[in-house]
Amino acid sequence: MSMTETTTPRLLIVEDDASFARALRRSFERRGYEVRLTSSLEGVQSVLSEVTPAYAVVDLKLAGGSGLECVKELHGRDGDMRIVVLTGFASIATAVEAIKLGACHYLAKPANTDDIEAAFGKGGGDPTIAVTARPTSLKTLEWERIHETLLETDFNISETARRLGMHRRTLARKLEKKRVP
């Protein structure tokens, strides 16, 4: 094995937004990573049949389903793999599940290469992080309940709307809005 093979970190990006995935790929390649792209669990399995990356960036919501399945598959292959979950649908429920399934960190989009690389380096929790006494807003509670139900239904919008007792279009509109902290 040559020196470059042993020192070049391998990264798998699991993202169904092709332009975002290409931008991440270029950015990580400039930093010396060997990068593979895929957009599905099947793609993850295909890559794993050829190589085991040391790092992975996984989008939570993929066109074909949940990125959590990809996290489970990747962590099952190599428990030391550094997996960062990216999402535009951040919630406590999905963050907890991602960490339980083997992700080392969970970042809300937009996240850049610096954020992701910093997350790869984090080995544990930070007990010094400030605990705020701010009460949770009604909008935040609603957002988290929606995402908890989305997780339960494997991101099926129609079933989530039915379980929450709201019209599918109403739910879709709520999901399109930016989260209010």
Rank of each mutant, 00 (worst) to 15 (best):
H75Y: 09
S66G: 07
T160F: 04
M166W: 05
T153I: 00
R179F: 09
R25T: 11
K109A: 07
T128E: 15
E152W: 01
D78K: 08
L74K: 04
E97S: 08
A161Q: 07
D126F: 05
M3G: 09
E159C: 03
S91W: 03
R26L: 13
E152C: 02
R169A: 10
V44R: 07
L37S: 02
D17I: 02
K100Y: 07
K72R: 15
L41K: 07
R31L: 14
V96E: 06
I129H: 11
L48I: 03
L164Q: 12
G121W: 00
V96Q: 04
E144Y: 10
V44L: 02
S2Q: 10
G123R: 11
K122E: 14
T8D: 09
G88K: 04
K139E: 15
A18E: 12
C104Y: 02
K72N: 14
K174D: 04
L41V: 12
S27A: 14
V71N: 06
L101M: 09
G64H: 11
C70K: 01
S137F: 05
T52R: 01
I157R: 07
H105L: 00
D17K: 01
L62M: 10
A119N: 07
E29P: 02
S137A: 09
E159G: 04
A56P: 05
R173H: 08
D59N: 07
L107R: 01
T6I: 14
E29R: 06
S19R: 11
D126H: 03
